[in-house]
């Protein structure tokens, strides 16, 4: 990595592990992931429900509930600032200011007893020390930015539709121009038409404010729309990462292939869907070898013995799959 690249680094995570110690056992949600993200870039964090995507984002915000959550990490830096060792009162300056998060479910993410204007203004009052009048004014600007008339600032969340609420959630997250935006399935709870609008809005805002973003989603269409880089997560590990072209056009991991095969194909409507068989392994009892092995079409004995490590295939493209020990190996996925 050159010096320039190091300066550009917004997010630098080494060996992040999160486990939840519950009465029914230890849930290993995130099992040692490395992530880096440079300025103005967008990373798509892709995977099934339960892959550890949201937990990863919460860990970056230091918002994993403790107890039962325990976060371990060798390095967690935002723009060179060590987040891991910050005391709670310093963290409050980082949250909402340097890093923001857009939450998954807009129906429950807003406080029902405060007006949306107040909820947007609150972070401005905290971080930019605006008077409540100025903050209200800026909150109105933010509402207009996300396409809601500013007169509606005095209304309460229950007076808004789902799509409008999601826009409010986005306005809250963007209020203080964060360097890093964590978007946790920002469109999952929305209608497709609204989804497209929200994605477009996020793209525009990203351009406007030079924000770096991690887009957490299981929607590959959404990834193709907004992401520069993609990391595919499975059972708390990254199994494949690279640029959008790497992962979409030069897919390497059998799991990524499975995700693509699960998409309906509008050009060939007679083709049957090929869902990935089976379920994600129980996170309280992960297998010794590759977590995906029980569901993998290419599984061999070697897969069951040891956890595959990420290996570089090209400068940008990495995959964690034992099968690539054999230089002849390739998956079946037909690249369109």
């Amino acid at each position: 990595m050159t010096n320039q690249e190091a300066n550009d680094l917004i997010l630098d995570i080494k060996n992040l592990k999160v486990r939840y110690e519950t009465q029914d056992g230890i849930v290993r949600a995130v099992n040692g992931i490395d992530l880096t993200l440079r300025k103005k870039r967008t990373l798509g964090l892709v995977g099934e429900t339960g892959a550890g995507k949201t937990t990863t984002a919460l860990a970056i915000m230091r918002l994993v509930p403790d107890p039962p959550g325990i976060v371990e990490c060798d390095k967690l830096e935002i723009s060179g600032q060590d987040i891991l060792s910050l005391p709670e009162n310093k963290l409050e300056h980082v949250r909402g200011n340097d890093i923001s998060m857009i939450f998954q479910d807009p129906m429950t993410a807003l406080n029902p007893v405060f007006t949306v204007g107040d909820q947007i203004a609150e972070s401005l009052e905290i971080h930019e020390h605006l008077s409540s009048k100025d903050a209200k004014e800026r909150a109105g600007d933010m509402l207009e930015l996300v396409g809601i008339p500013r007169e509606r600032a005095n209304e309460y969340p229950h007076q808004f539709s789902g799509g409008m609420k999601q826009r409010v959630v986005i306005a809250i997250a963007l209020a203080c121009n964060p360097q890093l935006l964590l978007a946790d399935e920002p469109t999952t709870a929305l209608d497709v038409t609204i989804q497209a609008q929200v994605l477009e809005l996020m793209n525009e805002l990203k351009e406007k404010y030079d924000t770096s973003m991690i887009m957490i989603t299981h929607d590959l269409g959404c990834v193709a729309e907004v992401c520069d880089e993609v990391a595919v997560m499975y059972a708390g590990r990254i199994v494949e990462e690279g640029t959008l072209e790497d992962v979409f056009n030069r897919t390497l991991h059998p799991y990524t292939e499975g995700l693509f095969n699960s998409l309906p194909n509008i050009k060939d409507r007679k083709a049957k869907l090929k869902p990935i068989k089976g379920l994600m392994p129980d996170p309280t009892n992960l297998p010794v070898g590759c977590s995906f092995a029980p569901r993998c079409n290419y599984v061999s004995d070697a897969c069951l013995k040891a956890q595959p490590q990420l290996r570089s295939i090209s400068q940008t493209h990495r995959v964690a799959c034992t099968a690539y020990d054999n230089p002849e190996f390739h998956i079946e996925r037909r690249i369109l």
Partner: peptide
């Protein structure tokens, strides 16, 4: 409730999360 997480993510101090956001509800 999720909205308390939203409040924390905004940088609201834990004291205000409880006394303002939670208690009112």
């Amino acid at each position: 409730q999720d909205y308390l997480r939203t409040a924390r993510a905004k940088g609201v101090s834990e004291r205000n999360v409880i006394q303002k956001h939670a208690l009112r509800n």
